[in-house]
Design a protein around this nucleic acid. Structure first.
Lengths: 108, 108
DNA sequence: GAATCACTTAAGTATCCACTTGACAATCTC
DNA sequence: GAGATTGTCAAGTGGATACTTAAGTGATTC
């Protein structure tokens, strides 16, 4: 089943921002509320919310609001899509050396 | 050996742009010159060169000029750093479930 | 029910960044 | 060595985007 391009676009774009990667790093340690997530970051809560919207739209993060607290969590989808893209590039790359090896063998 | 943060910044920033990912995809199929790389892309050669500078500075691509032709190639470093970052996040994430399992076992 | 908490939304700003243009350099072909 | 090929460099532009401020909403506490 081929992966959709727009997803990859959104995911890598989301991971391209250092603040958003910091958020993902923090979330990988466990679920946390928006305000607690914002504490160590030197930006306003509003900015954090905007980053979370980008992360959620890309499938890297999932959030759920209970009462007045929104709890944030990692969603495995985004990271696995990114990981797959990289793995694909590397495997195609590696296969080249295999073919190169074959050629060398043949010429022996 | 701890990885340097600036590298991760540059690498994910580089991968955040769709044109640069297209370039990496193309390069994973094998070495190619700048102008042949630019052909299918709907941007000027100068723009491609700028993308290549970003990619090379991040350790995703290596280039070498022979005569008047610059040949581009994938450098494994960049992709492996990115892959490692993602793998780290996922492993920390997975460990959480292990601990959760332990807690459930204890409460039995 | 007044005050506080935990966001949410909208609008504005300032910086960044991808891209173009145009002029230039080095190399190759004839 | 004239002309074509292949790339390089500098400067400028327009649009995206990360961030702030400020005002507003709904949930909780007292």
């Amino acid at each position: 089943m081929p992966r959709k391009k727009p997803d990859i676009d959104r995911i890598f774009h989301a991971l391209g921002d250092p603040t958003r990667r910091t958020i993902v790093e923090k979330l990988s340690e466990g679920p946390i509320s928006v305000s607690r997530l914002a504490e160590p970051l030197k930006i306003t809560l509003a900015a954090v919310v905007q980053h979370l919207q980008v992360l959620e739209a890309s499938g890297l993060v999932k959030t759920e609001k209970v009462g007045r607290v929104r709890t944030c969590n990692i969603e495995s989808y985004g990271l696995s899509v990114a990981q797959q893209w990289i793995a694909d590039r590397r495997s195609i790359w590696d296969r080249r050396f295999d073919r190169l090896g074959d050629l060398l063998d043949e010429s022996r």
